[in-house]
Amino acid sequence: MSTIIENKTKIITEASGFPSRDVMLDLKDLKKVYPTPKGDYVVLEDLNLQIRKEEFVTIIGHSGCGKTTMLSMIAGLNPISGGNISVLGKHIKGPGPDRGVIFQAPSLMPWMTALQNVMLGVNQVFPDATKGQRNDIAKYYLQKVGLEDAFNKRASELSQGMQQRVGIARAFAIKPKVLLLDEPFGMLDSLTRGELQDILIEIWNKEKITAVMITHDVDEAIFLADRVVMMTSGPRAKIGDVLDIDFERPRTRKAVLEHDDYYKYRKHLIDFLEH
């Protein structure tokens, strides 16, 4: 009898997750504690999330709930207080180029040209390639983001939107296993934001790099994602709800907006956020 029950529970736990060979990124019982003079402040607790290969996940939640903390822990820039994070079954130890990051501010080195900024990463990841090959990689991605005329412009001479394009090119050019995006378009005006969403999704359709993106924008979350992960408000934030977005890819903005399910998804997310 007892063995049957054990088997049953085992099956159930597996059914709630994904087959392990499909999992790219696995957050298990993740916890983050900041010590303060008034005692520990628990930002995240019991946070479990699995992200499949070639999946685009957006994370939505109120400001200050710990989204950025979670993302910087995945990036390895913020130490883990409890639980663990693994990429392809291996626990992460600190930052590394297998997890590319697109920051909220473009974070380009202003004294370098667009090409040099992308090359900084490419040189690091492909040390065995020839100089010409590395140059080609960097130029390819800069072309992809529409900056073929700005290779040799200094980052400080580019507009905010153009700088973030370089940031996208830099992240894709190092061919990471996981791409982490921390509200990359938060600082842009809505027109530029739309443009960059299109550019991002176009490259992503080609490269299919597993992506985790934080956003405040409900429409952006739906348009880009395979799944939208909703986080509860902190302290002790965790995953509140997950919404599957079943639009087929490649998507166009027009088709998404006209789809019958769009407003259903939108209502679901807004209900969660207003709850």
């Binding site: 390895g76 930052p95 690091q124």
Partner: peptide, 25 residues
């Protein structure tokens, strides 16, 4: 801090970090 984070994510060595990021900035 953003530049330092970029250097960390790209795993730049100390030499590269100093000469390509810290000193110019």
């Amino acid at each position: 801090k953003d530049y330092i984070n970029v250097a960390k994510v790209l795993k730049l060595g100390n030499f590269q970090k100093i000469f390509k990021v810290v000193l110019p900035s």
